[in-house]
Design a protein around this nucleic acid. Structure first.
Lengths: 156, 156
DNA sequence: GAAGGAAGGCTGACGTGTCAACAACAGGGT
DNA sequence: ACCCTGTTGTTGACACGTCAGCCTTCCTTC
């Protein structure tokens, strides 16, 4: 424990690169999204899932499953978005514990307006900068990491 | 604007992969760091920079330059860490506007204790899962994105 | 040396994310 | 019918990040 295998030159560059990538890309995309449509990344993610769902409504548990958040994060986010009129909560008929989350017309309008420029930005600042091979490498890396953390961190 | 180039199958997989990677990896590493040493990722980053600095102290402006945060984020973070005794603020002799940020012995102890298990975790959940070629691809991608966002987002 | 703008840093307000604790309900076994 | 356990969702407290606005100090220009 007192003498771990420190990162060598190559590893260190890659690790710093990842951290920079995360900082630069995410902050740029979120800033643009917020400026263009007044939505946060969290707003956007929930709206996308709901708008792609048959009936524009989903039980909170399923919604959580889609975005892989924990309970309280979703509860807070949904409460805030409900106050802004983007979605609304109703009771679940089949399970009195459950809560249904439903897209409002205003929420639908918001995501339809926000999506095109956001996708353009994702292309501009990221996807279009990568070769097809690099896209596949990234996909593969993500799957490996996911499998690794899935092993141990098995929270729900 | 009403008809952007949507992402195709391959691009979409890679983009979702990146988002999953970011979520899984960062949350795992931060949770472990916090559990093992009581430090947040932000704490860790500042402590690393200061501990690698000659004299264990840096002007706030330089510190900001290292971690690439904005003014207010650094000010808030330094205030919180000062309250916990990890570092302290003094006046800058050469510029009355400036503030010097200095590592305390307690802060030094904290980072020396936190670093080994954190590096092990970075290896375990990320670096050791990648081939040398993949490490280089990642570095290269990060540089391209950095150059792209640096073009336009030229804040300070 | 006085004026104006630029740079450095701080603060308050607000949205976001995490943690622990809680209340309500479901389902099974007795 | 009744407890017991696990699930579901909510809340409050707190740390974190961003934005806008503020004050002080520096520096240039006149």
């Amino acid at each position: 424990m007192s003498d771990p295998r420190w990162l060598d030159e190559r590893e260190s560059r890659a690790w710093r690169g990842y951290q920079n990538l995360r900082r630069d890309l995410d902050s740029t995309l979120e800033r643009r999204l917020s400026r263009d449509s007044g939505l946060s990344a969290a707003d956007y993610q929930l709206l996308v899932v709901l708008s792609e769902t048959e009936g524009q409504r989903l039980r909170a548990r399923e919604l959580r499953n889609e975005v892989r958040w924990d309970r309280s994060r979703l509860a807070h986010q949904v409460r805030r978005m409900e106050q802004r009129g983007l979605l609304l909560r109703t009771e679940c008929e089949t399970d009195a514990r459950g809560t249904m989350v439903e897209l409002t017309p205003e929420g639908r309008r918001a995501i339809e307006e926000a999506a095109p420029p956001h996708v353009e930005a994702v292309r501009n600042y990221f996807i279009d900068l990568l070769t097809p091979e690099e896209l596949d490498v990234l996909t593969s890396i993500a799957e490996r990491v996911r499998a690794k953390v899935g092993d141990e961190g098995c929270d729900e």
